[in-house]
Simulated assay, not measured.
Amino acid sequence: MQSIKTGIIGGAGYTGGELIRLLLQHPYAQISFIHSRSNAGKPVHTVHSDLLGDTELVFTDTISEDIDVLFLCLGHGESATFLQYNTIPEHVRIIDLANDFRLKAQAVTGTRQFVYGLPELNKGAISTAQSVANPGCFATAIQLGLLPLAAKGMLGESYITGITGSTGAGQSLSSTAHFSWRANNIQAYKTLTHQHLAEISESLAQVQNGYTQQQLHFVPWRGDFQRGIFVSSQVKCSVALETVAAWYEDLYKDHPFVHLSTTPVHLKQVVNTNKCILQLEQEGDLLVIHSTIDNLIKGASGQAIQNMNLMMQVPETSGLYLKPSAF
Rank of each mutant, 00 (worst) to 15 (best):
I289Q: 11
L278V: 01
S79G: 02
Q306C: 12
Y248K: 06
A98C: 12
I8F: 00
A177C: 12
K42F: 03
K275D: 05
T167L: 13
I34Q: 03
K253T: 14
R222F: 11
I297H: 02
V265N: 03
P89M: 06
D68L: 08
N39S: 14
E120W: 09
P89Y: 10
D294E: 10
P135D: 02
I20K: 00
I88K: 04
M308K: 03
T262Y: 10
V231G: 05
L52Y: 13
R182V: 13
T292W: 04
E316Y: 04
N39G: 06
N272T: 06
D100E: 08
F230W: 09
K42S: 08
N307F: 09
L267A: 09
I8R: 00
T6L: 01
G319S: 08
E202S: 13
P89Q: 09
S238H: 14
A40P: 02
E56M: 03
H217I: 12
L320R: 07
T273G: 01
N309T: 05
V69H: 01
L144S: 08
Q213G: 11
N295S: 15
S232E: 14
I94K: 00
N272S: 12
F82G: 08
Q171H: 10
D50W: 03
Q25W: 00
H259M: 13
T193I: 13
L121R: 09
N134H: 02
V258W: 02
S32A: 13
S174I: 09
D68A: 07
L23I: 07
A150L: 07
L144G: 04
S49H: 12
T292L: 10
I229E: 05
G319L: 01
H259V: 15
G136A: 08
Q130R: 10
I229L: 10
W247F: 12
L320K: 06
R37P: 14
N307D: 13
T60M: 03
G41Q: 01
G110S: 04
Q143M: 15
S233F: 04
V265E: 01
V270W: 00
G124K: 10
P324S: 09
V115D: 03
S131F: 04
L146W: 02
S3Q: 15
V271Q: 06
L144C: 09
G302W: 04
T273I: 01
G170W: 07
A198R: 11
G13K: 02
F257S: 05
I163N: 06
V235F: 07
Q84K: 14
G77D: 07
V288Y: 00
V207F: 13
M312R: 01
E249C: 12
I163D: 01
N184M: 09
A125K: 12
Q25K: 15
N86Y: 06
G228N: 05
G302Y: 04
A188V: 09
P264M: 00
H76M: 11
Q171C: 04
I277R: 01
D254N: 15
T15L: 14
T46M: 11
N274G: 01
L296M: 15
L74D: 04
P119Y: 09
F218M: 07
V265D: 01
G110W: 03
P315I: 05
E281V: 13
V231S: 10
S175R: 06
